[in-house]
Design a protein around this nucleic acid. Structure first.
Length: 278
DNA sequence: CTTGGTTCCTGCGTGC
DNA sequence: TGCACGCAGGAACCAA
C-alpha cells in the first residue's frame, strides 16, 4: 500500500495538476467501496466547487475545496489515483472527477480497503475518524526523539508494531518501518520499552531520513496492481530498499556480511539483518 | 488501557 | 493448462 512517501508523491503531482480547477462532473463505479456521504449528496457537495490545493496527513490525501469542505481519500492497500482521460470506467474504478478544463482524476482500488469521504464541517465522518487520532508527522521538524521515547517507554509490544501505530509515527507502514529499523540498527522484534535512548535517537533520525529518501525517489512500486504514479508509471525507491523484499540477499550496510531474514511480527511480513540489527 | 488475532477484498505467483 | 493455496504496502474491530 501507499505509505507516507507514496501519498506525498501523489499529493505533489495532484497539487500541480488540479489547483484552481472547478469540478464539473462526478462519476461513481458500480462496485461498492467505503464512501461518505451517499452518492447523490456527494455529488451535490462537489459539483461546481474549486480545488484550492491538495494536502496530506499521514496516509490520507486531502483536497481543500472552495466550499470549505475537504475531499479525503485513503488508499488502503491497493488504492491508486490515476488519470484516465475519457476512457470508459475501469473495472475497479470507484470515482472519477472531471474538471471544467476537461482534466480528470480517478480513484481506483481493487481490494476496496480504501475510503472516499467528504468532511461535513465539524467532526470527521466515521470511516476517517482515524485521522483525528493521528500523531505528529515524522518528517516534520518538530518530530522529536523525546516524543518517540515517550511512545515506546514501558511498552511490551515489539518496536515494529508500535512504528505501525499511526499515533506514534503517522504515515509509516510495513515497508518503511522495516527500512527505518534497519538504518537504525535495531531489530524489529525488540520490546519497545527495551530501547536505549541512543537507539531511540537513531530510530527517530532513521525514520525521517528513509521517508524523505522515499519521497525523493517518488515512492516504492513493488508489483503490478500496487502503487504507481498518477500517469501509471512506477516509483524508483524499490531499487534502493535495504531489507524489504530482500530475503536471502546480502545486507547492504557497509562492511556487514549478514543475510536478510524474513519473519512474521504482529501478522506482518518483517525483514531485517540478523548481523547488524541488535 | 494494552495486546494479539481476525476480518474486509481481489489478484498474482507458486507448486502440484 | 488448471486449480488450490498463500500472500500482499492498512487499519478497524474484537476478545482476553
Amino acid at each position: 500500500m501507499p505509505e507516507l512517501p507514496e501519498v506525498e508523491t501523489i499529493r505533489r503531482l495532484l497539487g500541480r495538476q488540479l489547483a484552481g480547477k472547478r469540478v464539473e462532473a462526478v462519476t461513481f463505479g458500480a462496485r461498492r467501496v467505503t464512501m461518505y456521504p451517499r452518492p447523490a449528496e456527494f455529488k451535490r457537495q462537489l459539483i461546481g466547487v474549486t480545488v484550492l490545493g491538495v494536502g496530506r496527513r499521514g496516509k490520507y490525501l486531502t483536497f481543500d475545496l472552495s466550499n470549505s469542505r475537504k475531499l479525503v481519500l485513503h488508499l488502503g492497500m491497493s488504492g491508486q489515483v490515476r488519470r484516465f482521460g475519457q476512457d470508459a470506467m475501469h473495472k475497479h474504478e470507484h470515482m472519477r472527477l472531471r474538471f471544467s478544463d476537461g482534466e480528470t482524476v480517478s480513484f481506483v482500488d481493487a481490494r476496496r480497503f480504501g475510503k472516499v469521504c467528504l468532511t461535513d464541517g465539524g467532526a470527521l465522518p466515521k470511516p476517517i475518524k482515524g485521522m483525528e487520532r493521528m500523531g505528529p508527522e515524522p518528517i516534520a521538524t518538530g518530530y522529536s526523539a523525546a516524543f518517540l521515547a515517550a511512545c515506546l517507554s514501558g511498552r511490551s509490544a515489539s518496536v515494529k508494531n508500535l512504528l505501525l501505530d499511526q499515533r506514534v509515527a503517522c504515515g509509516v507502514g510495513n515497508i518503511y518501518s522495516d527500512e527505518a529499523l534497519h538504518r537504525a540498527g535495531v531489530r524489529p522484534s525488540r520490546r519497545a520499552g527495551s530501547l536505549k535512548p541512543s537507539e531511540v535517537s537513531r530510530l527517530t533520525a532513521a525514520m525521517g531520513r528513509v521517508l524523505k529518501d522515499g519521497i525523493r525517489w517518488c515512492g516504492t512500486t513493488m508489483k503490478d496492481g500496487g502503487y504507481v504514479l498518477v500517469d501509471g508509471t512506477a516509483g524508483a525507491f524499490q531499487n534502493r530498499l535495504r531489507v524489504y523484499g530482500r530475503e536471502g540477499e546480502k545486507c547492504r550496510r557497509r562492511g556487514c556480511k549478514g543475510v536478510i531474514q524474513r519473519k512474521r511480527i504482529g501478522g506482518r511480513s518483517t525483514h531485517f539483518c540478523s548481523a547488524c540489527q541488535k
